[in-house]
Design a protein around this nucleic acid. Structure first.
Lengths: 147, 147
DNA sequence: AGTTTAATTAGAATGATTCTCATTCCTAGT
DNA sequence: ACTAGGAATGAGAATCATTCTAATTAAACT
């Protein structure tokens, strides 16, 4: 398991790799994402960061999230007609969106699946990323499994 | 090939199957989608419907699109941070989003792929739909291919 | 310490979508 | 045909998510 300090170090490292600065705001936003991996919206991230950093603004939350995405530390997930959600899981995975509860679950991908899916692209299409989104119902028991 | 009349008939049929009425607005919206299959936004659909039906309102465009989605005649596609796009292609397919041009292309799925992708879900997850979205660059030549 | 550049902040502005509600249109039942 | 009731539409207001602007603060680099 990776410690929190390592994570922060990783953040600082990634930021400086991209020529960006490590700031208290960015660290708080990132730790909020790591702390509860339920694919929060920017609004939710804001609410969770506020207690630790009461002066933080929504603009900063959006800026920091965008920064983390650029550093490849965070992915975004978009479901139809809802706000963008943020996910700090770096391993290749799909998303399952539970229509009953609104919850989002990470689904591990077997090795090779992404490559296989990419292989359906006709010549001339060069995909930099692939996203797989399931929509449906999950049993309560299954929910505990992933989140 | 399916004629335009059959399509309209199909629309009327699907609507009444769902206990909904066939209206001029719904027909125009649907024919707009069938006419140019470039995954337009609601705003674009509105602009294309206006010449044929000058009094139509955005509210009606949204209502009709939503209705078509409910009848399974149209799918929605969401790319990050953009308006929802609409697609009348009923065959199972993935979407390729060209980051350079903003264009969206349908990508046919080989038989069995959706099932295979669904099979990665752990027990307890029951997916009613799967969406596969690629993001990347397409050569001009490849573009002509799909759209 | 002083300059430069990046980052944050508050609030305004924009964009997309949904809501409200009055009006019009259908459809069914007389 | 006539009318009551529900469905669909239209105009505009309201809401929600996100981006922009301009001013302030913080960090890094002489």
């Amino acid at each position: 398991m990776v410690s929190n300090t390592d994570r922060s170090g990783a953040l600082a490292q990634r930021l400086s790799d991209s020529g960006l600065r490590s700031t208290p705001q960015r660290e708080v936003i990132y730790s909020v994402l790591l702390g509860k991996r339920d694919h929060p919206t920017a609004e939710e991230v804001f609410a969770r960061a506020k207690p630790e950093m009461p002066m933080i603004s929504m603009a900063t939350v959006y800026n920091c999230l965008e920064t983390l995405v650029q550093c490849d530390l965070v992915r975004t997930v978009n479901f139809e007609r809802g706000p963008t959600r943020y996910c700090p899981n770096l391993y290749p995975h799909a998303h399952f969106h539970d229509e009953a509860t609104g919850a989002t679950h990470d689904v591990d991908l077997p090795p090779g699946l992404l490559e296989q899916v990419k292989s359906i692209l006709p010549a001339g299409f060069d995909a930099s990323s692939v996203e797989i989104i399931f929509r449906g119902k999950a049993r309560a028991q299954a929910e505990a499994h992933t989140l």
